[in-house]
Computed example of a mutant assay.
Amino acid sequence: MPSHEDTRRKATPREFGKRALDVAISVLGIVLLALVFVVVWIAIHLDSPGPAVFRQRRIGRDEKPFNCFKFRTLHYNADESIHREAIRRAWAKEPLSNDPAAPYKLTDDPRVTRVGRWLRRTSLDELPQFLNVLRGEMSIVGPRPAIPYELEHFRDWHHKRHVVKPGITGICQVRGRGRVSPEVMLEMDVDYAMNWTLWTDLKLIALTFPAVLRGHGAR
């Protein structure tokens, strides 16, 4: 029987390059944004009871689950069924908001705290995922990590998005979040997973900053 080491996927040169980029950006981000981490931590604690950072089970590369870190934007122990229903409605192509620019974004979620709305609008709630990147569970660029129950709606070919690590940012965050249906988003994810290059990653990283400033990619 082959050992676990024998059966592990061999990294390609471009994957080594992607990993080096991930580590460099994550370390730099944590160092440069250390004060932001502290301010957000304090703001969350002052706004509502509960931990500032929470762990949520997500689906990673090769569909292996992992704990994804995020700054808490919801009231502690919030009802998960609201998001489950929003996912069902989005897959049925039912609008989730009256905003024509973001019909598939749940903009009036009653579970979101005051500070949480600001964190989502600025995407600062994603900052703890630099730790997931350093742990090798995520990449800076890639498809957003799916919640396990979201996979219930996937078609067979949608699972191809999981041949790469999930990312903090990606093509959907730059070009599609909230404005296109889940199926179109998955088409974009699969296209990225099948065709990504380091140059693509660098372009998406550069495009993330103006997207965040415009409010695109917030979730």
Rank of each mutant, 00 (worst) to 15 (best):
D109Q: 07
P2L: 14
G116C: 01
S48I: 04
V36K: 01
F16G: 02
A11T: 09
P148W: 12
T113V: 06
A78T: 00
L35W: 14
N132E: 08
R89E: 08
G60A: 10
A86C: 10
Y192H: 11
T122W: 07
N132R: 12
E150Q: 15
A78F: 01
R114Y: 05
D79E: 08
I59H: 08
D6Q: 13
P51M: 07
E183V: 11
F54R: 05
I44C: 02
K203M: 14
G60Q: 09
A101W: 01
L127I: 06
H45V: 12
A78Y: 00
R179I: 01
P13C: 10
R135C: 03
I82C: 04
Y76K: 05
I30K: 03
A102W: 07
V163A: 10
Y104C: 08
K10L: 14
W91E: 14
M138E: 07
A102H: 14
A146Q: 13
V36D: 03
D99E: 07
F130N: 04
P145F: 10
T122V: 07
G29M: 13
F71W: 06
V180C: 04
L96N: 07
F54Q: 05
G60P: 04
G136K: 15
D6T: 02
V174D: 10
W118L: 12
G60E: 06
D125Q: 01
I42N: 00
I30S: 02
F71K: 09
A24Y: 05
H158V: 06
A90S: 15
I44V: 15
G50A: 05
K18E: 09
A146S: 15
T122L: 07
K18A: 11
